[in-house]
Amino acid sequence: MSVLGIDDPWIWGAYVLCILSTLLCIIYGILKWNEGAEKEAEEIVEELKWEKEEEKMEEQELGDD
């Protein structure tokens, strides 16, 4: 069977899988678009703590100290 001008199923299979896996990503994202909202505020606070630590590290690497 030839699909889109490619005869080898190992190759057109990969072509099709690329598109299917992208669709999987898109569908997953749409379905879960609002999931996790309840914990988000808490997570952002936690992230902030981390970002501050990281900023300190970067400043030390690059700042004039």
Partner: peptide, 18 residues
């Protein structure tokens, strides 16, 4: 580690794949 929340991770999946 630099992502703000799990929700943001979920939402980044479609654009990331595309």
């Amino acid at each position: 580690l630099t992502v703000k929340s799990n929700r943001e991770l979920n939402r980044a999946v479609p654009m990331g794949g595309l």
